[in-house]
């Protein structure tokens, strides 16, 4: 398979890391439920994302990855509580999106510093207005461009997302799935937000469209955007990501470079190994059991009940050290 990944970046963070665009520190999110219950959707997640880099956050449905995305966009519902920090931007001018007020988020963060590439572009676009009208509105809102320059600015934004200019006057329902995706991407790129978050960008798309979407996402990373892709589609993650973060029961259990993860020596966390082995092109064998419920997480390693290597040590929660949170993980190959 043709690997569009930039080789230069795969090991870049190991040495003098570039200034991260996004640095998430010990982020936890929980939801207060009726009856005093609470659901611990995200637990102590930390990672960095640099410009020009693509981090794929993978995990099964209900592992908390979409909640994490919502937290980073300040879109959590009223019964959510957060802890930790998610710093956006370089050291001099950084902002914690978790504690920032709604006004700050609306005026300076969404669209301007963080762009969202939506899951279903057809639902993300207004059906009753043309792509051009929506682009121009977004340009005016985010960049304050005057009426005269609006047309050119909208066309430039469309060009950046490789949206054909002669399709600008069409309505969303007149676009194919691929073009609708580009239109939605164009909206996300209007204000040149340095950080892009793509939430399940490939769900429900067929292979050709997945390939194209993945190719475009990769291109945005190569153009210098920081890209956070949230997906359960490992095949798509393999093709787009520089680094992989595997989430299980609200925690990152493995955070590593994509090439050794998908190639040799492979994942080091037993869950990540099982997830990869379940692919139809590999063993096609499921991991036994179900993930724990997020409102009743065990004290120790959450994967232990499903793990063939579990021992007494697993009653203690393993830290994420050296890129993997497991007491039994093999040493990193290059460590």
């Amino acid at each position: 398979m043709n690997d569009p990944r930039r080789a230069a970046n795969t090991a870049g963070h190991e040495t003098a890391a570039p200034e991260p665009l996004l640095s998430v520190r010990e982020l936890s999110v929980r939801f207060l439920m009726p009856g005093g219950r609470h659901v611990a959707a995200v637990n102590g997640v930390s990672f960095d994302l640099a410009a020009g880099e693509c981090l794929a956050l993978v995990g099964e449905s209900g592992c908390g990855k979409s909640v994490l995305a919502a937290a980073l966009l300040g879109l959590l519902p009223g019964n959510a509580r957060t802890r930790g920090a998610a710093w956006l931007g370089p050291a001099g001018d950084r902002l914690d999106v978790l504690t920032a007020g709604e006004a700050t988020l609306a005026r300076t963060v969404r669209g301007r510093r963080v762009g969202l590439i939506p899951q279903s572009p057809a639902a993300h676009l207004t059906p009753v207005r043309t792509v051009r009208a929506q682009l121009e509105e977004t340009v005016r809102e985010l960049r304050g461009t005057g009426r005269a320059a609006l047309r050119a600015a909208a066309e430039a934004a469309a060009a950046r997302a490789a949206f054909p200019t002669d399709h600008l006057d069409r309505y969303p329902h007149q676009l194919s799935g691929g073009l609708a995706q580009r239109a939605a991407t164009a909206l996300a790129l209007v204000a040149d937000a340095p950080l892009l978050i793509a939430d399940e960008p490939t769900t429900g798309l067929d292979r050709d469209l997945v390939d194209r979407t993945v190719g475009e996402l990769r291109r945005h990373a190569d153009n210098g955007h920081g890209l956070l892709v949230i997906t359960h589609d490992l095949a798509a993650a393999e093709r787009v990501a520089d680094r992989i973060a595997v989430m299980y029961a609200g925690r990152i259990v493995e955070l590593t470079d994509a090439a050794p993860f998908f190639g040799s020596p492979g994942p080091r966390h037993p869950y990540a190994r099982g997830l990869l082995a379940a692919l139809p092109e590999r063993d096609f064998a499921p991991i036994p059991g179900l993930p724990p419920e997020l409102d009743a997480l065990p004290d120790g390693c959450a994967f232990a009940p499903r793990c063939d290597r579990a021992t007494d040590r697993c009653a203690v929660l393993p830290d994420l050290t050296g890129g993997v949170a497991c007491h039994h993980a093999p040493k990193a190959a290059h460590a």
Partner: peptide, 11 residues
Amino acid sequence: TAMLDASTTAA
């Protein structure tokens, strides 16, 4: 299985 992760799909 279009909405599901690899392990659930296999299961």
